[in-house]
């Protein structure tokens, strides 16, 4: 039974928790697995560091907290600095290219996207998190594109579905355009690597 661990981090107000919610929903409800999301409940006002974690498993998630981080999604420099050392050596880093300047371990798979700029071009910077989510979805291939889109439609406020799907597809396409065949330059794999007993 595989177990995969993800942390999403960013500023309060960037939609970190909603991103986690959509990943969890897509993996558990739309794809028929299990996903446990835990959000940080500190004094995270808008603008300060905020984070959410997910444990994904094909069967019951027993221990709901992180043990070995397989993927880190960093939407802010502060968040990246705070959590970068938790990432496994072969863990995937997905980051906001204009806001995060990563110092990569040798051989570490890393994928950057200018998600804030893309969201601005779409016309609403608020969908930056969904652009990032589309990119993350293309990088990791956790569930099908249709399952991702269902999870988004069921999670975002009514009336914003089209805008959010447009943002998701923009992130997804960015991956296709910038990473040849799913591989960043010099990298071997794009799948979340860890296969651990749950």
């Amino acid at each position: 039974m595989s177990r995969k661990e993800i942390r999403i981090t960013g500023f309060g107000g960037q939609g970190v928790v909603l991103s986690g919610h959509i990943i969890g929903r897509a993996y558990s409800i739309d794809a028929g697995n299990e996903a446990t999301m835990i959000q940080s409940f500190g004094p995270e006002a808008r603008g300060s560091a905020c984070s959410t974690t997910l444990v994904l498993s094909e069967g019951e998630v027993l221990y709901p907290y992180l043990q070995e981080l397989d993927a880190l999604v960093a939407m802010s420099g502060d968040g990246y600095e705070k959590y970068k050392d938790d990432l496994n050596d072969d863990g995937i880093l997905v980051y906001e290219k204009d806001l995060v300047k990563p110092t990569l371990k040798e051989g570490q798979p890393a994928y950057g996207i200018t998600s804030t700029r893309i969201a601005e071009e779409i016309g609403r910077v608020i969908v930056q998190n969904i652009v990032m989510l589309g990119f993350f979805a293309a990088v990791t291939d956790l569930v099908t594109k249709e399952q991702w889109e269902n999870a988004i439609k069921d999670s975002v406020p009514a009336g914003t579905e089209e805008l959010n799907l447009k943002a998701f597809r923009a992130g997804w396409d960015y991956f296709d355009e910038h990473y040849d065949g799913g591989k960043p330059a010099g990298q071997e794999t794009a799948s979340i690597p860890a296969e651990k007993a749950d």
Partner: peptide, 10 residues
Amino acid sequence: DECVGHMTEK
């Protein structure tokens, strides 16, 4: 407990 209260699952 807070963990179960603030934990999201199916």
